[in-house]
């Protein structure tokens, strides 16, 4: 008897996970409009990028990739990119992810480190977890264009 009721509980949990999945799939587009605001609009995104630059500078694993980088230009393009991705009023004017990373031989560990730095910076700026996850979900698929190029 006990086993049956637990099995029922497990099944209902599965069904509710599915239901939430389907519902959240529908609401995804409406929340995207607010992501730019949730990141703190242009001031917030600038702060994220500046925080990220500090983290990169202090990380011996990845800082060498930026040896020949024009940092003010990199900063401007990254701000544009995050702004456009999050639904803000900007247009990314840089090269494609694949073009801009070719020749750098960026590894999975490098990419992982950058993701961790971004999570740390966003958490420090009290950006809600849902907004953090949404942005990470937009950046994650770029992995294939960025690493081992």
């Amino acid at each position: 008897m006990k086993a049956t009721s637990f099995s029922g509980l497990w099944l209902s949990l599965c069904i509710s996970v599915m239901a939430v999945l389907i519902l959240s799939g529908c609401s995804q587009t409406s929340t995207k409009d607010h992501l730019y605001q949730q990141l703190g609009s242009s001031a917030g995104i600038e702060k994220i990028v500046d925080g990220l630059l500090v983290e990169i500078e202090q990380d011996p694993q990845i800082v060498h990739h930026f040896r020949d980088t024009d940092i003010p230009r990199f900063r401007k393009l990254l701000i544009e990119q995050l702004c456009e991705l999050s639904g803000g009023p900007c247009k990314y004017t840089g090269a494609s992810m694949q073009e801009s990373h070719t020749g750098f031989k960026i590894t999975q560990a490098d990419f992982d480190n950058l993701v961790r730095h971004l999570m740390k910076v966003m958490t420090a700026q009290n950006i809600p977890i849902a907004a953090q996850n949404q942005l990470l979900g937009m950046l994650a698929p770029m992995y294939g264009d960025v690493v081992y190029r």
Binding site: V17, V20, L21, S24, Q28, T31, P128, I129, A130, A131, N133, Q134, L136, G137, A140
Partner: peptide, 11 residues
């Protein structure tokens, strides 16, 4: 992992 899949949480 599916980002922001359930109430903004990763699944």
């Amino acid at each position: 992992v599916y980002f922001a899949a359930v109430a903004g949480r990763n699944l």
